[in-house]
């Protein structure tokens, strides 16, 4: 294991309903790095993030290490308590539960009971940072929210959670440019102390967040990794080059 490694994925095979979706992937994320995982729809991006956070719908083979600890057999709540946070692309609605009370609950669980003053101060500063509409704090979680509002809710939770590893699924869909800029700045701030994995199939996001590494996932395997120039290539040519290779090979 390399020093300061936060997340280490070795030979990971992931299946859902007996169908293998990921066919042996490797990934290494260190503190301070932003990894962008790109790929066409259905390439296995969501499967990978679900496997990392411990969605029980998926079965895995191989190893996932977080800060040197094997986590691939742990429940999702245990993984979260170690410092992994997943911002969902389409988070589920939970009627009758306010966003504010949910954040308060998971923070109390994670850090022990915090005073209301302290909690409110933190909430205040993060809502200002990302321009979060505070009215949403008292609304029911993801009930009757627009796509953009759900995204912002996920980002607010993420920033309040202060994870060591943040996995962010398709953050750019549904957010307007201003919101995306503010959120991107917040992610960059977060990445100074944490590792970040961005899941995306567009390249738009990279105008605002500079990834350390870009990985291309096609048909359940990483086909290429590199720097930002890889994203530029995708911007120009799409995924056709890899898809063709796969098909002809």
């Amino acid at each position: 294991m390399s020093p300061h490694s936060l997340l280490e994925i070795r030979d990971l095979y992931v299946s859902a309903k007996d169908k293998e979706i990921l066919h042996g992937v490797n990934l290494n994320v260190r503190q301070g790095e932003i990894h962008s995982i790109m790929g066409p729809n259905g390439s296995g991006k969501s499967t990978l993030s679900n496997a990392i956070i411990g969605n029980p719908t998926y079965t895995t083979k191989g190893r996932i290490l977080f800060k040197g600890r094997k986590i691939h057999l742990m429940n999702a709540d245990k993984r979260a308590s170690l410092g992994i946070f997943f911002a969902f692309q389409s988070p589920v609605a939970i009627p009758g539960v306010s966003l504010r009370s949910l954040i308060r609950t998971f923070l109390n669980e994670k850090r022990g009971k915090q005073s209301y003053e302290e909690f409110n101060r933190e909430l205040e500063s993060i809502t200002s940072l990302i321009g979060f509409n505070r009215e949403l704090l008292n609304k029911e979680l993801n009930v009757k929210l627009s796509g953009g509002e759900k995204k912002m809710s996920e980002m607010l939770q993420l920033l309040m959670f202060r994870p060591e590893l943040a996995i962010i699924d398709e953050i750019d869909s549904g957010l307007d440019i201003d919101a995306l800029k503010r959120v991107s700045r917040a992610i960059e701030l977060l990445s100074k102390k944490s590792g970040v994995i961005l899941i995306t199939h567009h390249t738009t996001l990279h105008k605002y967040i500079q990834p350390t590494q870009v990985h291309v996932l096609v048909n359940g395997a990483f086909v290429e990794s590199g720097g930002i120039e890889l994203a530029d290539k995708i911007e120009r040519e799409g995924y056709s080059a890899w898809l063709k290779k796969k098909n002809s090979g």
């Binding site: 029980p56 969902f88 589920v92």
Partner: peptide
């Protein structure tokens, strides 16, 4: 299961997640 998983991904135990969903239902 989706609701349970969502709350568990926030670090809440199954028991706590269930509590929250039930309290929300009764709110």
């Amino acid at each position: 299961d989706e609701q349970l998983f969502y709350l568990k991904s926030r670090g809440l135990s199954e028991e706590k997640a269930t509590d929250i969903i039930v309290s929300g239902f009764l709110s």
